[in-house]
Design a protein around this nucleic acid. Structure first.
Lengths: 231, 231
DNA sequence: GCCTGTGAATAAATTCACAGCG
DNA sequence: CGCTGTGAATTTATTCACAGGC
């Protein structure tokens, strides 16, 4: 029997809320850097790009961390959200595929500053193995399993070409990894209990194109759009 | 108060559907490469990682492009989705900020293959200006407005450090751009009518950490989680 | 008076389940 | 029959609006 991943909701935290917590966290860190001690839901919502009712509802799922008539203590809220997201602990991450994207990820400050430690860089290309990137030496993909096991890697980032991604996923899953962040433009097939999240660099661009296209036509309906629809 | 004109659902394709169309497109391209001519909603849904009812509902917003008892013609559906997303036309894109991420984006095949043409690479760093990347010479940020105007750039990708992003956004908006894809970890403030989409490389990782954390504790609540909660 | 926290209302998205066409 | 397309039912998310604490 495969162990089921409890959904966020079982703790009373909707998925949509979980997806926004990192955004709030970033906004809060920005405020903290500027020395702000307290912030209202209105101002934090503005900084995060959401509306204030949504923000309050989201935060209410974590607990009552605000003060009526005052707002939220920035540092305290940072701590609470971080704890909720699991960022108060250290996560060892391995990045597989050290092309342009893998390098960008390895150097990305946003990972390190949020409790993620890059514990390994791996690639299949002998021309890349041995390179020093972000303080780490790129290792050969042959050592994937030992890197995972010996360094306590619990999250693997796949930044390989599409063709290699499934194979890498299969190997890391066999090695016990249950959380994968996939940048390769392919849908990974994984067993139940493994959590895959996907970032496709071109999807957002395609969504933009969709909206841009509509602006160009001024929102007018084309004749072909009328088919079968009556008000 | 009388509700005015929900007359037609018009061509109001739900946002959630628009966000999935690129995923279907990718799955379809995969099928096409393997020579598949026709696919059922069940199989396409599997390849795309969604359930089949959702897929059918999504496609129904575009029109009736399937055949009952048979399925969907792969090539025809690729064309229809591409057209709907505006990918049958050529979009000139400028990438501002040519660090690791900017380079990764410039070299990313997924852009070019989907109707996006990188028409300019710009950076403020004189040490980078003049570099040749993906067949383009990096230009100085001073030329931003002229690149946009002279090359018909309609979408700008911001891959600068956080501190520079808002300024870049202001400039490209002043130059007439209304679609921005922002990779900088900052919330951009833009006027109405400007469409900003954001990709934060660390957000998905944080969401993974949230779920991974709950696996580790087996879904059990930690003592600190009880605060103020009665269930 | 100000601002949070939250039930209630509304809207959006998903899923069900089946009529109906090929 | 098989599979699409789609109303209806259900679930999830957002927004409203205000009670209630500071």
């Amino acid at each position: 029997m495969i162990r089921r991943i409890p959904s966020a909701r079982e703790r009373g935290i909707p998925d949509a809320t979980v997806a926004r917590l990192p955004v709030y966290l970033r906004a809060l860190n920005g405020l903290a850097e500027r020395g702000t001690a307290t912030v209202s839901s209105e101002d934090l919502a503005l900084a995060a790009g959401v509306n204030s009712a949504k923000l309050r509802k989201d935060l209410s799922h974590l607990g009552s961390y605000g003060t009526r008539g005052v707002g939220y203590d920035v540092q305290y809220l940072i701590y609470q959200i971080s704890r909720e997201l699991g960022l108060t602990q250290d996560w060892a991450v391995a990045i597989v595929g050290v092309g342009n994207l893998g390098r960008a990820l390895a150097n990305y400050g946003g990972f390190v500053s949020r409790g993620f430690r890059v514990a390994g860089l791996l690639d299949a290309d002998p021309g890349v193995v041995g390179d020093r990137i972000a303080g780490l030496v790129v290792e050969h993909i042959d050592g994937l399993e030992s890197v995972i096991l010996n360094r306590g890697v619990s999250i693997v980032v796949i930044a390989t070409p599409a063709a290699a991604a499934q194979q890498v996923a299969d190997r890391v899953i066999a090695a016990g990894v249950t959380s994968i962040l996939n940048f390769a433009p392919v849908v990974l097939t994984v067993p139940d209990g493994v959590d895959v999240r996907k970032v496709d660099l071109s999807i957002e661009l395609q969504i933009l194109a969709f909206h841009e296209q509509r602006k160009v036509t001024g929102g007018a309906m084309l004749p072909e759009d009328w088919a079968g629809e009556v008000g």
